[in-house]
Every structure is written in C-alpha cells, then in structure tokens.
C-alpha cells in the first residue's frame, strides 16, 4: 500500500481511539512524522502498525500508556533510529518539485502585480537577471529554513505541556521575519546582471508553463499521489 493511502486510512482509523489514547497516539504520530529524512513509506507502515496494535489493545481494556510505556519520546527515538533514511533520489525530486512550484507561484504573482500596477502607474518592464535570480534563491532558502525550524519546534514541544502563548510568539515571529525578507530583499538588492525586458503577460505565461511542467513531473514521479 502506498504511503498516501496509509495516511488516509490512519486518519479514519484514529477515530476509533478513546480521547486519552488518541492524544497519546497523536503526539507520537506528529513526533515521528516531523523527522523529515526518514523514509515516508516505512514511517507510515510503522505508525499504522502502532495504531492497529493500540486499537486491539484498547478493545482488551488497555491504555496507550500500558502499551507504549511512560516515556514516549525515548520510545519513539528508539524506533526512529532504526528506520531507513529516505532515498537521496526521491528527496531530491521532492525538493526540486517544491522549488519549481515556488518558482511558478512567484512568476504568476509577479505577472498579476505587474499587470494590475500598469493600470495605475508607469511600470518599468526591464529586470536584471542576476539580482532577480539571487532574490529568488534567498526567498526560497528562507522559506525552507522557516519550514524546517517550525518542524523542529513542533517536534520539541511534543510530549510536554506546551505553552500556547510561547508557541504562538515563536511561530508568529518566524512568519513575520519570512514576510520581511520577501518584501525588503527585492528593494534592497542592488541590481546587477544582464537586463531583459519582461512584461506582466510574459510572467503569467512563464508561470503557467512552469506549473504545467511541475504537474507533469508530479504525475511521472507520483510525488503527491
């Protein structure tokens, strides 16, 4: 069975758990799933096994704590260290796919903004390739770093009484920082590199082409199926 099917089945089956067992299980689930570099397929097979076991044990009158012990973090770490790493190739395809998607949205958004702006003001249609490319690389890097940080943060806050206010402040600051980079990076970037003329419709066209290409890649490698 494919990882995506297992995830859907897991979502349905979790409803059979009592409230207390569900809380315990979901903490383990999130903790294990936020380890991004282990094989998704193996991860989903494992968490499904644990869920099936817990459901059977629950019918026999046992709690999640009886089954998995008092120290879920150590228990999960003990399993994670034996899980195989995600294959380099599928990780590379996935990251490539994300970058392509991001590039597509970037082009579509630039196109829309340029076209709307051109109704109200004179838009300079030329851009410098060097600085635009660098801006894009920085934006993509910041997005990946922010996502990675948020994952680590979520993982760290599992299994303990989490402080909602503190979590909110941290995740809010990260999002604000990311937005600030997005807004100020293109303004502060000195322009360099070969200049080309590119209008709003060119952006839209390029964005659409990239989205179509990423759809084809997705179908070929079954990234999100």
């Amino acid at each position: 069975m494919h990882a995506k099917q297992l995830i859907e089945e897991n979502n349905l089956k979790r409803n059979q758990l009592t409230e207390e067992n569900e809380k315990y299980y979901e903490d383990m689930l999130i903790y294990i799933r936020t380890h991004l570099f282990i094989s998704e397929q193996q991860t989903e097979e494992l968490v499904m096994e644990l869920l099936d076991h817990l459901i059977e044990a629950q019918e026999a009158g046992k709690s999640a704590q009886d089954v998995f012990g008092d120290d879920p973090k150590t228990y999960c770490d003990d399993m994670i260290k034996h899980l195989p790493k995600e294959k380099g190739k599928s990780a590379a395809v996935f990251i490539g796919y994300l970058i392509l998607q991001f590039l597509g949205f970037f082009a579509l958004a630039s196109g829309a903004v340029t076209i709307i702006a051109s109704f109200f003001t004179q838009v300079n249609p030329s851009i410098a390739i060097g600085s635009s490319l660098l801006t894009f690389i920085i934006d993509a890097g910041v997005i990946f770093a922010a996502i990675a940080f948020i994952f680590v943060w979520i993982r760290r806050s599992m299994f303990k009484r989490s402080n909602k206010i503190k979590d909110g402040i941290v995740i809010g600051s990260i999002s604000a920082f990311t937005m600030a980079i997005f807004i100020f990076c293109p303004r502060l970037m000195p322009s360099f590199g070969y200049r080309i003329e590119i209008g709003g419709y060119d952006y839209l066209l390029a964005g659409l082409a990239i989205m179509v290409i990423s759809k084809i890649i997705n179908r070929k490698f079954q990234i999100t199926q």
């Binding site: 097979e45 494992l46 644990l50 044990a57 012990g69 228990y75 003990d78 399993m79 034996h82 195989p84």
Partner: peptide, 21 residues
C-alpha cells in the same frame, strides 16, 4: 514486557535483514 517494546526490536531485526514484513 511492555507490549510496545517489540516494535523497536522488529525494526532492528528488519534493518539487519533477519526478518521481512
């Protein structure tokens, strides 16, 4: 033996290729 303690062991045995699922 707590029931859950079999899973880390099952994973290790799979990694060593002693068992298959």
């Amino acid at each position: 033996v707590s029931e859950g303690s079999i899973y880390p062991i099952l994973l290790r045995l799979q990694k060593e290729q002693f068992i298959e699922g």
